[in-house]
């Protein structure tokens, strides 16, 4: 390796993405837990944590611009830096969506749930897995794994539809369930959106690794 210094800076940028990713993962986990446990305090903690992810995004963007300006990266290096900056935006959006979920947790924390939550935690688990695995594929620039993860998004979309249909049934039967049903439909949709961003990460990994654009 000739460009050791550049190599290290690029590695540091990768590490920032991974740190940001693990915070996002935790944020999603806590947001869903706060919903299940109707834990208002935990929900508030998620909401208050917003700044951390925003700061990571700004830091990563700045560093990407700096490396581009000073090191004139080309080929794979250039693709990697561009995509890192976009992945940071994906992760920041995932964090925002998890916070939206936490806001709903807060709102519903005093209510009796119309039904035990089953599909939403299941969906959350899949989505968290997608986030984690998309970042694993990023670390190893493993386009095969990225494709596998990207394709899990169909499962998430199916669950989102199923949850929508089920909650609609509840709401039709009992109009006092409308407020809660409506909020839970939003939670499902937020999780589905997080899954889409994880899919974006996978597509970006494939682009870094192969220079081909794909869409899952």
């Amino acid at each position: 390796m000739v460009r050791n210094h550049f190599e290290q800076q690029l590695e540091a940028l990768n590490e920032d993405i991974l740190k940001m990713g693990s915070i996002v993962e935790e944020t999603i986990y806590k947001a869903i837990l706060s919903l299940e446990k109707q834990d208002r305090k935990l929900a508030q903690e998620v909401i208050d944590n917003d700044d951390v992810l925003d700061e990571y995004e700004i830091k990563i963007d700045k560093e990407s611009v700096r490396l581009t300006a000073l090191q004139q990266p080309v080929a794979k290096d250039l693709r990697q830096i561009f995509m890192i900056s976009k992945i940071a935006t994906d992760l920041e959006r995932m964090g925002d969506l998890a916070q939206n979920i936490a806001r709903i947790s807060k709102e519903l924390s005093e209510d009796n749930l119309i039904k035990p939550l089953v599909d939403i935690p299941r969906m959350a688990q899949i989505v968290q897995g997608m986030v984690r695995e998309s970042l694993d594929s990023f670390v190893n620039l493993d386009e095969v794994k990225a494709e596998e993860v990207g394709k899990q998004d169909d499962k998430v979309d199916d669950l989102d539809n199923q949850i929508l249909r089920e909650l609609l049934t509840y709401m039709i039967e009992d109009n006092s369930a409308i407020k809660q049903g409506n909020r839970l439909i939003f939670v499902s949709r937020y999780l589905e959106r997080i899954g889409d961003h994880a899919t974006n990460v996978c597509e970006r990994v494939v682009y870094i690794a192969t220079a081909d654009r794909v869409s899952y």
Binding site: R3, V74, A75, K76, D77, L78, R79, A211
Partner: peptide
């Protein structure tokens, strides 16, 4: 953007 040969990639990067 996307050199085909590994040697090219190594050189330009």
């Amino acid at each position: 953007e996307k050199p085909e040969n590994k040697k090219t990639e190594d050189y330009i990067t």
